[in-house]
């Protein structure tokens, strides 16, 4: 056997990618089966969405505020202070708000799901579900992945709105921009090419966070340190995936000429 194929066979990194791919394939297979767990899905939407509202809102607010305060001196230097609302809103909506929201959620939701399913695995709760006739993959994994996929765009939209408001306050700390003028400039510069791609990518962020959290928890190693490891690695892998998806999304938007 040549060294490359040995590497491919032995590499834990590639093995993990393969396993995640299989897990994702299983997700699509199971979601197509009849009987959806609607009650548990709504329950998860509540946990994932509602319970992250404040965290995401506060972060969004600070992001807008800080970005505006930080950008002002540079714009002043170029005599383009009046561009402040336009510039800040484009950066926030296209990139900063969705990505930061996704990273926050990778931390909160990814680790939450990883730890929850991990402890259910090691205390045999997942086996108990299977024995009592409930498909645990459908009940636990499909509902959580779907909830994360649908809630991330909602949370990200909220972060968008609040960060723009933070931007308004930031612009008024030193300068003086009226409420009407600020929003006129913001909506004047933003178009569908900015908003839609950034909204669409948040679905993928949510999907990735849900899949990774569930994968890590569902196959958690025995023992309490196994649960801890599931939660931690879920955050690391999900955050990394958020950046990779973002990179791909930028390339696609670019190719489609939506810039």
């Amino acid at each position: 056997m040549n060294p490359l194929s040995t590497y491919i066979k032995e590499s834990p990194f590639l093995k993990e990618i393969g396993e995640i791919a299989l897990f994702t394939k299983r997700f699509f297979k199971e979601i197509a089966k009849p009987k959806q767990e609607y009650a548990e899905f709504l329950n998860q939407c509540f946990w994932i969405g509602y319970k992250s509202l404040i965290l995401v809102g506060v972060t969004g607010f600070i992001m807008g505020l800080v970005l505006t305060i930080q950008s002002r001196p540079t714009l002043v230097e170029f005599g383009a202070e009046s561009m402040l609302p336009s510039m800040v809103s484009v950066s926030l909506i296209r990139e900063i708000a969705p990505v930061i929201t996704a990273l926050i959620c990778a931390g909160k939701i990814g680790s939450g799901i990883g730890a929850e399913l991990g402890s259910m695995r090691v205390t045999e709760q997942i086996d108990a579900m299977e024995v009592s006739g409930t498909n645990p993959f459908k009940y636990l994994v499909v509902t959580r992945v779907m909830a994360a996929t649908l809630m991330l765009p909602v949370l990200s939209s909220l972060a968008n709105a609040i960060s723009l408001y933070g931007g308004y306050l930031g612009a008024n700390i030193r300068g003086n921009v009226s409420w009407n003028l600020y929003w006129f400039q913001v909506f004047n510069v933003l178009n569908y090419g900015d908003v839609l791609p950034s909204l669409i990518k948040t679905f993928f962020f949510g999907f990735a966070i849900g899949i990774i959290g569930c994968y890590k928890g569902y196959y958690s190693q025995k023992g309490t340190e196994g649960v801890g490891r599931s939660a931690t690695t879920a955050v690391i892998v999900a955050s990394l995936l958020v950046f990779i998806i973002d990179l791909i999304a930028v390339q696609i938007t670019d190719l489609l000429g939506l810039t």
């Binding site: 090691v122 205390t123 045999e124 709760q125 086996d127 108990a128 579900m129 024995v131 009592s132 409930t134």
Partner: peptide, 24 residues
């Protein structure tokens, strides 16, 4: 099946735990 670790669903009440096998 009585699991060694009991495998009680810890996000559910005792009643919900017992009702769980009935739902299917």
């Amino acid at each position: 099946f009585l699991f060694q670790s009991n495998a009680l669903y810890d996000s559910m009440t005792v009643r919900q735990n017992l009702e769980f096998p009935l739902r299917i």
